[in-house]
Design a protein around this nucleic acid. Structure first.
Lengths: 345, 345
DNA sequence: GTTAGCACTCTTTAGTATCGAGTGCTAACT
DNA sequence: AGTTAGCACTCGATACTAAAGAGTGCTAAC
């Protein structure tokens, strides 16, 4: 669809004004605000044509125009300028993120917080997942006489730990057996292999040692499950309450986000491959009814070169795409960098 | 204030109906629903007297009555029956909580989730704090050649860990120095002693080893700070959106909760000492304007006999006190038990 | 291709009438 | 003295109407 320069200019202006104010924009005020040298009637003709093309719509006959979803799409694909983050903003973001370094959850939580504050949208992120990841390291850390912490690191840099209690005292002997079992059965293999069934078979073969060992092994299976399961973090849902479009039904959307299974599905359907920009899904482009009044922008972050998890923003279809997209892109970049840090060698 | 039996019965009925429906209750429907043998006029007289006592109020002249804050207070203090949780419910709660065991955050998060789902209120909790706690154990866990995890356990059972990176490889020698420093300076002392200034002094005295050691010590200070800082967790704020009383201003309250400093202040002003039941603050009894249309119920959980942190619920003044309070009490009890688990010996 | 002019549409706001739930009071009853 | 029937009164909710205003679409002229 090729538009004249003037139509492009008008469409962009309408989208941007509507994003800023949430009010339908009329021909007269548009001419004024753009300082155009044509009259409102001319603009009105242009707007009628843009409507005919499906790029604008009217809430009702006598109101101004608002962008249709197609209009947003055109804007995003062809018209939108992208604000570059200032070095200052970048520094600020990094400073806010820094204290979280070393802890995946915290990094993502901070990132979500930063994004939601910058954009007044709800931010969502998933913890890294990597099917190909294998167990790289397991440590048994004594905490008390009958308490230990099990730490596990995977090849994709995910680090998880869990405390467990044993029935008897934890002896050097036990620790040794534990490491033997781990080295023989799990190191270098996928975390999925550390399944509870496998643990049971092992426990049987241990004979009398089994009683002492089982709690440790069960905890180990648990940690393994933790490294595999991707979690979904939400921040700033309350931002959505500020938009009139959610006046009535904010609850529905927020509940939808809270039970995040669906979001996981959406994310897993996309990769960055080919596309350089974040994915943008506008209104009905979303598969789920609950999101069809909203837009979603999301992007995968990479840990050590592998796409691992996702950062996303959800807000009304009139979200400020031109600002969101660069912000999101920058945060995925820097989150990826921070999380890659644990993967060395 | 001593009321006749009939007045008590009426007040309780009015409070409970209003809690259930959110609609002012009128004399006629009240007589019906209670199956009383007196006429609505009689009840009307009684209600007028309860109004005169300040226990009921009218949204407007021609509406039914709703409880005043004083009315709720009287109900909570004298009239309310407390539902005991069924063994079945208790078992369900424990089952939901069990997988989180060993991780303070997760336990509190689950507890908050359970509470907010049971009560349709917002749940808030604070992580344990104990000024008298001392460092009981510190471990350095190697994760990679230049990555290590520092684990710290305090006498109050708080366990925190953090990953850090060093400049050079982590040698056995380094680990030994680290443990020496820790044993000599920190074990058995309050976590607060592990302040960044102290770390700096230490670093200086280390001479050439300092370069390698500093990242570890800084991380240590960081972990110490983590054990001391109490965090505030929120769950189920979105429940509040369902109440008509928050139709317009849910945003304000939710934002207030999100910036949780204030809540911390409130909690720290109360201890369970003497009072056995959870604390109940109704409407204006709250110090902060943002909470004065709401009620708050909270209770401290105990780790190994010491009051450590708080679980609370926040909702409209017409919250279901009779249900909330036993639920909250049971959860503080069981959360305390679970968290005491790490403190042994 | 552009523009002034104007009739037309449709929301918003205000004003008015009606309805009904619920009260408060009085007077009568037990 | 406590209870009750009866009734006037209040005030929100609902519906309807009228007027105002923003913005359009169209026509005819530039």
């Amino acid at each position: 669809m090729e538009l004249s320069e003037r139509k492009k200019k008008l469409l962009a202006a309408i989208v941007e004004r509507y994003i800023a104010t949430g009010e339908p924009v009329g021909s007269k005020s548009l001419v004024e605000s753009l300082g155009m040298s044509v009259s409102s009637a001319t603009v009105r003709n242009e707007m009628a044509e843009l409507s005919a093309l499906g790029l604008l719509e009217q809430p009702h006959t006598s109101a101004g125009r608002i962008p249709s979803e197609l209009g947003y799409r055109y804007y995003v694909d062809h018209l939108m300028g992208q604000y570059e983050l200032s070095p200052n903003e970048k520094r600020l973001i990094e400073a806010k993120l820094a204290p979280a370094s070393g802890d995946v959850q915290k990094v993502l939580e901070s990132a979500g917080n930063i994004l939601s504050e910058m954009t007044r949208c709800a931010a969502v992120s998933t913890t890294p997942a990597d099917d190909a990841a294998v167990v790289r390291r397991v440590e048994l850390v004594p905490i008390g006489t009958r308490t230990a912490m099990i730490v596990m690191l995977t090849s994709s840099g995910i680090l998880k730990s869990r405390v467990c209690k044993t029935f008897g005292e934890i002896t050097v002997d036990m620790a040794e057996s534990f490491y033997n079992i781990v080295n023989a059965n799990f190191i270098g293999k996928p975390a999925a292999a550390m399944h509870i069934a496998k643990i049971q078979t092992l426990a049987v073969s241990l004979g009398e040692k089994s009683l002492d060992m089982t709690p440790l092994l069960v905890a180990l299976a648990d940690v393994a499950a933790m490294t595999e399961r991707t979690e979904l973090l939400l921040e700033g849902q309350s931002n959505l309450l500020g938009y009139k479009e959610y006046a009535e039904n904010a609850y529905e959307l927020i509940e939808f986000l809270r039970h995040g299974e669906m979001l996981g599905q959406i994310f897993s359907g996309y990769t960055n491959s080919g596309k350089s920009a974040p994915q943008v899904l506008i209104g009905q482009e979303n598969r789920f009814r609950e999101l069809q009044n909203s837009s979603m922008v999301f992007d995968n972050y990479e840990i050590a070169g592998h796409e691992s998890g996702t950062l996303g923003l959800i807000g009304p279809t009139r979200m400020d795409y031109a600002r969101l997209i660069p912000s999101l892109r920058y945060l995925t970049e820097i989150v990826g960098k921070m999380l890659s840090d644990t993967v060395e060698e």
